[in-house]
């Protein structure tokens, strides 16, 4: 078994941003491994994305084309990936921890009879064993673990998106494209998508916002979120929330920041009445500056914050918002 394989995802004829990140991670690992980086691409017409994968760091592309692979469907994708892995025997596989990666990654590992290092934020190669080592947060981010594998290969890591940068597109890179023939039986498809309901957010997208203002359980109800919206608008930002707030039904789950919510990386993250539980902080570790307003000086959020006010938000927030209005509109 040899070679490092990145399982790619395609959107709009291009490889996804998390695939670009993994190709870069793969190239970094290959400095030690020296076995080359391949991208596995699946789709009904994935051909267009192959050059894109090569331009972003793939030395070779394995391509599987089938009408059943048009959109992600777990049973068909699993069968195709199983065939690719069995035909090409990679020693290391990298999968992004996206909606698709989380859904299929562990199943693929079990199908191949091997283990997974889940949710890695860093992957390395042990120069002696050539085995994979993954560093990952555990216990909601309260602790970090370094994990490695037994001899049994492939070694599979599922990597948290945005853990690696993408390489600049390099159109001059060359790479081979190999088509892998897979016979997919339509009867294989068990899980069928019957409806997709999108609840698009208004205004600035939380994941892309440069400024995010989030509220927590200490706000006591849904009304104060109107005040947060006013503040967010002044700062051209978006409104986030802790899970406690979403579970209480004060705002929609699309606002949840954290381990099981959205990952944000704004320049400025203002938290109001949020305690700063590790599972919340897991979603905003990329924020450049965290500001906390909380009445409890011992709250964990102050350990993560750059600026803090210990006080009652009922008093702090209106004055803060007013001052922001004056400063930003003068």
């Amino acid at each position: 078994m040899s070679g490092l394989m990145v399982i790619g995802e395609i959107s709009d004829g291009k490889i996804s941003s998390s695939t670009c990140e993994l190709l870069n991670a793969g190239q970094m690992l290959d400095d030690t491994l020296k076995e080359g980086v391949v991208a596995a691409l699946l789709g009904s017409d994935p051909g267009k994305a192959t050059q894109d994968a090569i331009a972003h760091g793939a030395d070779k592309v394995y391509l599987v084309e089938d009408p059943l692979l048009k959109d992600y469907q777990i049973d068909a994708y699993l069968a195709a990936l199983e065939k690719v892995c069995k035909d090409t025997s990679p020693s290391i596989i990298l999968i992004a921890r996206t909606l698709i990666g989380r859904d299929i990654g562990p199943r693929l590992a079990f199908r191949l009879g091997v283990a997974v290092a889940q949710d890695c934020i860093e992957v390395k190669i042990d120069p002696n064993t050539k085995g994979l080592v993954g560093n990952r947060p555990v216990y909601g981010g309260n602790a970090m673990a370094a994990v490695t594998f037994t001899q049994l290969k492939p070694h599979i890591a599922i990597v948290r998106p945005k853990s690696y940068a993408a390489l600049e597109t390099d159109g001059s890179r060359k790479g081979e494209v190999v088509t892998i023939q897979v016979k997919l039986d339509p009867a294989l498809v068990k899980v069928k998508l019957i409806k997709s309901v999108k609840e698009p957010s208004e205004g600035v997208r939380l994941e892309d916002a440069q400024v995010v203002v989030s509220g927590g359980r200490g706000l006591g109800g849904p009304e104060p979120f109107k005040d947060l919206e006013v503040l967010a608008k002044l700062l051209k930002g978006a409104v986030g929330a802790s899970r406690a707030v979403c579970d209480a039904g004060w705002v929609d789950y699309s606002h949840q920041v954290g381990l099981t919510g959205k990952t944000i990386a704004p320049d400025l993250y203002i938290t109001v009445a949020i305690s700063g539980a590790s599972q919340h902080m897991a979603g905003c570790s990329g924020a450049k500056v965290v500001v906390a307003i909380n009445k409890d000086s011992s709250a964990n959020i102050f350990k993560e914050a750059r600026y803090g006010v210990v006080g009652d938000w009922n008093k702090v927030l209106p004055a803060f918002t007013e001052a922001v209005r004056e400063l930003t509109q003068s």
């Binding site: 555990v138 370094a146 914050a305 750059r306 600026y307 006010v309 009652d312």
Partner: peptide, 25 residues
């Protein structure tokens, strides 16, 4: 099939600057 090499609590070096005033507002 997996083994744990290390388990530790990450240290943060962040220093919070507390902003104080005559009152909360």
């Amino acid at each position: 099939k997996l083994s744990l090499l290390d388990l530790f609590i990450p240290v943060t070096q962040k220093q919070c600057e507390f902003i104080e005033g005559e009152n909360d507002a």
